[in-house]
Design a protein around this nucleic acid. Structure first.
Lengths: 124, 124
DNA sequence: CTGGATCCAGCCGGATACTG
DNA sequence: CAGTATCCGGCTGGATCCAG
């Protein structure tokens, strides 16, 4: 690639972005929206087990700011808010799926490595 | 995939792993080791600008525990320590490269989205 | 040279209460 | 329903000093 080394400099754009999408809730939100299409706030919260509403809102705001999702508020009573991936956000889907697939495929190996490592010197 | 929804449960293995490799220093270390081959501790530290030795050591220990890298200590004076990717760690390279490429390709779009978002309501 | 140990500021993130 | 606001404990991560 044109700048293979640039991610290793402190202020490289790709590094900032890596931090942005490296976030756990961000990636899970993108995958959830990719799988299920547009989702309401509450539906997203239900999909992503264990997320607090603070973290979910915070993540969604950041994703909206970064142009990864759109936020559509319907001023009914009660209010309805839908989140949907932008084309930019959708372009991340294949990568995240690969990452997720890798995790699910190789987790046993990692668990084995951990067990062996911990068994070798429990004190560590 | 066989269990598309499992990463959304709180204690799913893939979620733990996502946290492990989602770490900034971990992914940068893997890419660095993938590009340059085995590296000494100091060489790694020099490659990854901005990392503290505490964080680098911590990341390397975690990666070693997870079976992603091997740590080889040569008891000379001074001590020499080499880190190298395991096959498991190497299998992550394509994914991380894609992620890095995506970041470098789409960063302008993200920056534009941010600028627009911030311009719309500076108070946010 | 490669780290371990410690101190400490700052942010992350959960719980709770309140609002339109 | 979909947030915002606030409090606060705990962990992250940098700086520094020390050791094999």
């Amino acid at each position: 690639m044109s700048c293979a080394y640039e991610a290793f400099t402190a202020d490289c754009p790709s590094r900032r972005l890596l931090e942005a999408i490296g976030n756990k809730w961000v990636s899970l939100s993108i995958v959830a929206l990719g799988v299920h299409g547009p989702l309401r706030y509450g539906e997203l919260a239900a999909q992503i087990e264990g997320v607090s509403q603070k973290m979910l809102t915070q993540s969604l705001r950041r994703m909206e700011r970064d142009g990864l999702v759109t936020r559509t508020v319907t001023p009914s009573v009660p209010v309805r808010t839908d989140y949907e991936l932008t084309p930019l956000g959708r372009s991340l889907l294949p990568l995240l799926h690969e990452l997720k697939d890798w995790a699910q495929e190789h987790m046993p190996a990692v668990d084995a490595a951990r067990a062996e490592y911990d068994a070798a010197a429990p004190s560590r």
